[in-house]
Design a protein around this nucleic acid. Structure first.
Length: 599
RNA sequence: GCGCCCUUAGCUCAACUGGAUAGAGCACCUGCCUUCUAAGCAGGCGGUUGCAGGUUCGAGUCCUGCAGGGCGCGCCA
């Protein structure tokens, strides 16, 4: 099944070919001038250049062939040689019924399924998530869903930051504060026999009541600051980190406790945001791969000694700049950020063997990934071009600088959601919406409104551009916002409930009113929005489509009475509303946004 | 210093292989709730696409230069 644009493109391409011109010129796009046409083709203008002929003359030839097409009610040449097409109401009605009957709501699938891994969010142990993680989570989740919906086999990986210097800092800080933990560490680290599972259970239970996530959140900033200021403190943390990485029993157990409490809380927060991972692989998971990998890289002759460190040079001929090498082993003998990333590429090759990996990470790390990717290609861990960095801009405050709270700190993800939720509750009450809902449903609705507000605010922008996070604006809930989209969806749901109550059924769609035409043309444009989002890894195409669809529905809703119409018309309009709702909810779902039943 | 990205309406952002009159939302102004949810709808106001050149029948889009802003550039992640 193909959309109108594609179907017409084929016809126009054939017409160009019949005129002895390249078929590619027959590409049809939605019209820039809806007052004149539904679709247009600019091919005659392009042809004129190479064929050195009058574009209007070329267009005339093509138009003559197209005139007989039953789908078109009008074909005209306009301006310098634009071919304008108006689709007949019959063809539009047919297409509407096709979409209504399609479980995919008019969306096509990829021709060949690929195995895709999406690496996003990247939360860390102890370090609280901040707004920077928000964009990666939101964009990554949307990309994952869009790829999956298009038919690829997609796996989303949180890429948990659980294996660095921050762990040494935390271990030290917790021991300093808690004599029990210090004693436990001394006891376990001194062990010569393995810890039994029974002992392990007891130790975890003891830690559970003594070291909470709040403690970690509180201790980490202090420890990080102290580590910056005091050499001795820093050295101890380094030593503890090394001891952890050499799997000293006590530290390793304590670390597992840190990782577990953090992960539990993070998964809960992510889930509340509509972000769920298939894999929750940590940096620690590839630790064992590093030593053999380094040996293998050495055997392959890729490692070079330089200033006491071991590096891989990745510069290529024709580079415009001096790309730094990948630092594989530091002069102190430890693995670096890039080492872990490289080992992760290798791990993924053996475990999932992806055709393509998308790294949804801040644009500022573009050079870092370029270096890692090149090293991976050199090592044969991934096919050239199969690793791709999906960069995004920073989220700034209204002052244009990276987003901070009033106090100057970094705003935590949780606080941001809670702030938005509070706004949502206020707005619901102000607008006297949801008054009849029970408290739990009301809260659930407020939560969905908040998530929609946050996510849509982010996803309506192209991911590459930095954008201004203005909570007041986002939570005004008017105009181009997530809540607007939910509101339109809820209006249809309410309408459908009422129709059901009156025993009114949907029927075949017949398009006549201009508002109906516009709505169907938008329903038809869903596939193009998806294709653009997929090919450019840019969810804002889907967000834009959802908004335009909601807008078109709202116009239709205002212009065309539904339940009070004559039975046949009523059934048609009800079907149109129902189809719109299903496509709108599908688009919202791809953005990771869920609509409530009422608001 | 080298490199990458950005600059579009008062504000926040779009603009599909270069195409017609550069579009939305907010703000401001005017209408519309006895009729399916007014977080809505209809209409109005608002532009030398940072500046200067170039390529082209045609440039927000491609090329060059300049100005302003952001970011990155080996032992943090």
């Amino acid at each position: 099944m193909s959309d109108l644009k594609r179907g017409l493109s084929e016809a126009v391409a054939a017409a160009f070919a019949a005129a002895g011109l390249p078929a590619e010129l027959g590409r049809v796009t939605p019209s820039d001038r809806p007052d004149l046409a539904d679709f247009q083709c600019n091919g005659a203008l392009a042809a004129a250049k190479t064929a050195r002929r009058d574009p209007r003359e070329i267009a005339a030839g093509v138009t003559a062939t197209l005139a007989a097409d039953p789908r078109l009610s009008a074909v005209e040449i306009a301006g310098l040689g634009f071919i304008n097409m108006r689709v007949s109401d019959t063809a539009l009605s047919e297409r509407a019924n096709e979409i209504a009957a399609d479980p995919r709501l008019g969306a096509s699938s990829v021709a060949a399924m690929r195995r895709i891994l999406v690496d996003y969010a990247g939360p860390n142990v102890a370090k609280p998530m901040h707004v920077g993680h928000l964009r990666s989570s939101i964009i990554g989740e949307a990309i994952k869903r869009i790829y999956r919906f298009r038919g690829d086999m997609v796996v989303g990986d949180a890429h948990f930051g659980d294996w660095g210097y921050q762990m040494g800092l935390l271990i030290g800080a917790v021991m300093d504060e808690n004599p029990f933990v210090k004693a436990l560490m001394e006891q376990l680290n001194g062990r010569t026999t393995p810890i039994t599972s029974e002992e392990e259970k007891t130790a975890f239970a003891a830690l559970e009541s003594r070291v909470s996530l709040d403690d970690l959140d509180r201790l980490y900033p202090e420890a990080a600051a102290k580590g910056k200021a005091e050499i001795e403190y820093r050295e101890r943390a380094r030593k503890l980190t090394a001891e952890l990485q050499s799997k000293m029993p006590g530290y390793h157990l304590l670390w597992r406790h840190f990782a577990r409490v953090t992960k539990v809380a993070l998964e809960r927060d992510f889930h509340a945001l509509g972000v769920d991972f298939d894999l929750w692989k940590g940096e620690s998971d590839v630790d064992d791969l590093i030593a053999p990998m380094v040996k293998e890289l050495d055997d392959k002759g890729l490692l070079v000694d330089d200033q006491g460190a071991r590096i891989i040079r990745v510069a290529r001929q024709g580079d415009k700049r001096d790309l730094p090498p990948l630092l594989v082993v530091s002069s102190e003998g430890s693995a670096m950020y890039g080492t872990t990333d490289l080992a992760t590429v290798l791990d993924r090759k053996t475990s999932f063997d992806p055709d393509h990996v998308l790294y949804v990470v801040d644009q500022r790390q573009a050079d870092h990934f370029e270096v890692v990717f090149r090293a991976a290609y050199l090592a044969g861990y991934a096919a050239e071009g199969s690793l791709e960095h999906i960069g995004f801009g920073t989220m700034n405050g209204i002052d244009g600088k990276p987003f901070k709270t009033r106090e100057g700190g970094v705003l935590k993800l949780n606080d941001m959601i809670e702030m938005t939720r509070t706004k949502a509750r206020e707005r619901l009450r102000e607008a006297d919406l949801g008054a009849e809902l029970d408290p739990d449903t009301f809260d659930d609705t407020a939560h969905k409104v908040a998530v929609a507000a946050l996510k849509f605010a982010d996803l309506q922008n192209f991911r590459g551009t930095s954008y201004v996070f203005d909570l007041d604006r986002f939570s005004s809930f008017e105009g181009k916002t997530g809540p607007y989209l939910l509101y339109q969806a809820v209006r249809v749901k309410s309408l459908l409930r009422k129709a059901q109550g009156e025993g009114v059924k949907t029927g075949p769609i017949t398009v006549a009113d201009p508002a109906e035409r516009d709505l169907v043309l938008l329903l038809d444009a869903f596939d193009q929005a998806l294709t653009d989002a997929y090919e450019k890894r840019a969810p804002h195409f889907v967000a834009e489509h959802a908004f335009k669809l909601a807008q078109a529905f709202s116009r239709f809703y205002a212009a065309c009475p539904i339940l009070s119409a004559e039975p046949v018309l009523r059934a048609s309009r009800l079907a149109l509303a129902d189809t719109t709702l299903r496509q709108l909810e599908q688009a919202l779902d791809l953005l990771g946004i869920a609509a409530p039943e009422r608001m």
